[in-house]
Amino acid sequence: MRALAVIAIASVALAGAPIAASAQDEVEAPHQNWSFAGIFGTFDRGSLQRGFQIYNEVCSNCHSMKLLHYRDLGPNGPGGGIGFSDAEVAAIAAQKQVEDGPNDQGEMFRRPGKPQDTFVSPFPNVEAARAANGGAAPPDLSVIVKARGRGLEYLWGEGGPDYVYGILTGFEDKPPTGFQLTQGKYYNNIFPGHQISMPPPLADNTVKFQDGTKATLSQEAHDAATFLTWAAEPNMEDRKQTGAKAILFLLAMTGVLYGAKRRVWKDLH
């Protein structure tokens, strides 16, 4: 009967099987080192801010992030934001034009963004997004890292930053010989099926980082993936830190209870 316990543990392991068994034409993205990985992992605030800069200057031209607000970036945001002050957040929001209304005349109007506004979407609706992008609407990036999660990283609740990094750095100018590339598609090593509608968004020096970091493609991809991981679960740091305390507490409690159990049952034998 002991074996049933082994089975119980195995069942937990087996539950991961559906994730491991994904599409066959999939290439595993090479593993990167992430500061937020592991039990005590935390986000690198500099990387987060650079990642936001890339989203703001590059990705946001096509991709929405409807679940995020400008306030999220500030000190009162979930997980303590990405290190911007309230004033910086207000300045970032004020650069955007937000549709608001109706006003006293019953008309919609545009005004500068406020911290509590959601990230402004590049297209008013999915139909417009599809029409402007050759029939393929660019997906919302709010939780994309969790939605594209796979393998062990996904298990650890960090989603798929490797995959995002892999896509951003995985473009090839020319497909391998013999590969039939559809008109208007791009070849990507990591994307399932290798044909992606998104043109290569990043290259060396696509952005000029405000903090002076050298903007290589891999640096940009790394920072963008870090920011998107934060965006997908901004409370990750809090979760891991709370978890360490909770588990230590439970272990101590269980230890004492084990001692108590032995003491109580000692009389019986």
């Binding site: 507490f249 439970l250 101590a252 409690m253 004492v256 209870l257 001692g259 108590a260 003491r263 109580v264």
Partner: peptide, 19 residues
């Protein structure tokens, strides 16, 4: 059951209550 309140038992239940 013993009526004597064993220290470990009390501690165990107390920690659980705190949790």
């Amino acid at each position: 059951p013993t009526t004597r309140r064993d220290f470990l038992t009390v501690a165990g239940y107390a920690i659980a209550a705190v949790g």
